[in-house]
Amino acid sequence: MNRVFQGFVGRVFSYLFSLWVILTLNFLLPRLMPGDPLAALLDPASSDYVFDPEVRAALEAYYGLDRPLLEQYARYLVGIFTGDLGRSIRLSRPVGELVASRLPWTLLLVGTALLLSSALALVAGTEAGWRRGSRTDRALVAVHLLLANVPVYLTGMLFIHLFGARLGWLPMAGGRTPFARYETLLAAALDIGRHLVLPALTLTLGMLGVKFLLVRNTMVTVLGEDFMLVARAKGLPEGRLKWGHGLRNAVLPFVAHLAAHAGMAITGAVFIETLFNYPGMGRLIFESVTARDYPVIQGVFLVVSAVVLTANLAADLLNARLDPRVLEG
């Protein structure tokens, strides 16, 4: 038990360490970059000069470039923990507010896609692994190999064209109908749901390939293990063999990869939100990049990193619950 606890503490510690690295990186990067991009914002001679005096004052106060580096760092950290992520140059709004308004959309999109792709990958991967070498298996592997290599924006474009433009079944862009006022909660949910279908489907397919191949290949390895032979010799029913022993073991690497997949999903979301004009963080990144809105880029980077790291920790702890060997090392 003690060793388990130690393992747990170790995980949390390494999580906090990574978080600190991210925070520091975010602080140092703009200040160490050649050409001093932040100074350029305040330099009337530069092309990036911010003309709005109010925003310029806010920037000056936020970055505090004239103070010693350590003091800047201390102020930055205090700022982060009090929720101050700076101010958008483009929109003249606090970054924290911007992020807060966009994050739920991304979480909805990514969460839906993660759940859907995981469920599909687990079921299809287990079946394909169970029937390894069969025609079904080979077809599934070929399809998913293709899926794993197609950029999400290609799938997205096809969907927009087919379901949006050609068939007109689903909206082609946005997170909800513009300026709509909903009578009931259900109407709101329906509208948001309709807008979610295509982006979520695109992202699901974008992640499905990798996840399926992981489950399927692990399953094949697991089925070759001696304990599977014993389980068969015990005369257990097929369902128990396939799911109870096969998938139960194959799910471990799957969970271990969940964090990496969450990172992938966010990457995919950036493209999909851009393509579908979906009002999430990805779209925000795209917009801020186009406008060189540094405080927003940094803020989004911090929040997304924190989300991915937390997902990492959660997956680690889940894996430790699922696999008795993990924490004891």
Binding site: E225, D226, F227, L229, V230, A231, A233, G235, H245, R248, N249, L252, L322, D323, P324, R325
Partner: peptide
């Protein structure tokens, strides 16, 4: 039920989870 087996590979014959 009627014929049971004790396999040779003791180390890996039990499901680890």
């Amino acid at each position: 039920r009627r014929i049971a087996l004790v396999v040779q590979s003791v180390g890996t014959a039990l499901d680890p989870v």
